[in-house]
């Protein structure tokens, strides 16, 4: 396996193999969490993403200080979403961190390139709409609008319930009179569409 020589990978957590401890976990811990996540363990998966987020955030902020914290947070979310939607390209017999590095580097470069071209326009457009909501995390602006405006009503409902209100799949299914499987499928499709929409907003 090869460690990328340069770029915006998950560098904050030490070596690519072995038991090396970093501030946010080891290769083996992460790989164990990822294997559990692949089996459907939502708690393990959330723990992995929570461990990854600060590492990625510091990499992104270091490289994109001039973009401002909201845009950096947007990029972080793009990277997390990409990792999520491409996680079937990691084989469980492979080391996890080089895989994460490769995906994160590709996506961060991609996100910076996209924003380098036309990044100010969408944010300015939204200033008028959300300027009154002081309590809203500035990082939320683009995405709240993206979802509400562009996802269909049911998908937006499901993502909002699970993401913002902390509902479980089961609760959401009961409320919307859908089976759990149908909620899962709808959620997965909504996330894929969300990733495409975010991409399109950059173009």
């Amino acid at each position: 396996m090869t460690e990328p020589e340069q770029g915006a990978g998950v560098q904050g957590a030490g070596q690519s193999t072995g038991n090396s401890s970093g501030p946010h976990g080891t290769e083996q811990q992460w790989a164990t969490l990822m294997r559990a996540a692949n089996q459907g363990d939502a708690v393990a998966y959330a723990a992995l993403l929570r461990a990854l987020a600060p590492v990625l955030r510091s990499v992104i902020r270091a490289r994109g200080a001039d973009l401002g914290p909201e845009t950096c947070e947007d990029i972080l979310q793009d990277v997390l979403l990409a990792i999520h939607l491409k996680r079937h390209t990691w084989r469980e017999d492979e080391p996890l961190r080089p895989w994460l590095n490769a995906l994160a580097r590709y996506k961060v470069v991609d996100a910076f390139r996209a924003r380098g071209r036309r990044m100010t326009i969408p944010l300015e457009q939204f200033n008028d709409v959300l300027v009154a909501e002081d309590a809203v995390d500035p990082a939320q602006r683009r995405d709240v609008l993206t979802m509400i405006a562009a996802l269909d009503a049911r998908s937006a409902d499901i993502v909002r319930a699970i993401g913002l209100e902390g509902a479980t799949i089961r609760e959401t299914g009961t409320r919307l009179e859908m089976t759990e499987g149908a909620v899962r499928v709808a959620l997965h499709r909504a996330l894929k569409r969300l990733a495409r929409l975010r991409e399109r907003m950059m173009e």
């Binding site: 393990a44 998966y45 959330a46 993403l49 955030r57 979310q77 997390l80 084989r91 939320q140 996330l191």
Partner: peptide, 21 residues
């Protein structure tokens, strides 16, 4: 959407399904 909310949403979609091959 905060990053924490995104993580919660992604976690609810945890099972991977079939591998790439």
């Amino acid at each position: 959407m905060t990053t924490e909310a995104l993580i919660a949403t992604l976690a609810a979609d945890a099972p991977t399904g079939p591998g790439l091959r």
